[in-house]
Amino acid sequence: MKDVAFGQYYPTKSFVHNLDPRLKIVFLIAYIVAIFLAANFVGLACCLVVLMLAIGLSRVPVIRVFKAIKGILFLIIFTTLLNLLFYNGETVYAEWWIFTITKEGILFSAFLVVRLILLITCSSLLTYTTTPVALTDGIESLLYPLTWIKFPVRELAQIMSIALRYIPILIDETERIMNAQKARGANFETGGLMSRVKAVIPVLIPLLLSSFRRAEELGDAMEARCYTGGKKRTKYKKLRFTWRDLLAFLLIAALIAAVVLAKVYLGATV
């Protein structure tokens, strides 16, 4: 339950799983840049090809990756409709009241939908193939230069890692408390706004109290294990680059080149 609810990590071994998490984050950013650089459908097609290749290499079922779209389906439909009906194009196909459907509008909406879908699926591919722990390590490592301006990167990473450890526990606990109160006749499913807000209190208060208790106990346990803050600590895990990372790097570089070339030679669709 908790595994599904959070992180969505898809446990398997694959080329993508084995990439260095730091690079995966950088690649994701580069990929997103490529998506935005792509100015025509050829460019987007290149992006799609790379994404499909990555999904194939990740051994995560394609359907699972694309399921991530479900979460923002409403947003996609909403923006598409908005653009479809209000885009100011030249070739008008239909007109009704304040709405106009134009050729440019259709193209632009289609373009936007593909972009959004690519954006979401590539991000979800990262969380499917990278454990939250590795992700935290990657972010910590990428942010490391910020320690120069006295930004507490390690403490931040510590907080993130602890949060990752406790979020599933708290989700579990929420469920347990909700069940306990349901068994006492609490109703979370029906009723007006006010009564629903009121219904949350018997869950929220025990949850808060237990979080405080956990925090206190964890604080003691950390202190007992000689934790004194970020100073003078060493780090056990070290991230290493491998040939896979180089290969992935070349792929992303090729993608950006292809997208830019497509833009230069074929021009922009919108």
């Binding site: 347990r176 408390i177 069940n179 306990a180 109160q181 068994a183 006492r184 006749g185 609490a186 109703n187 209190i201 018997p202 869950v203 208060i205 025990p206 109290l209 237990s210």
Partner: peptide, 25 residues
């Protein structure tokens, strides 16, 4: 239904209110 460690589901300001919760519901 009494869950494991049921004391962790207490929430009300007074013992009275907490016990009355189920009755009222």
């Amino acid at each position: 239904m009494v869950m494991q460690y049921p004391e962790y589901q207490l929430f009300a300001e007074t013992v009275f209110d907490d016990v009355a919760f189920g009755y009222k519901n």
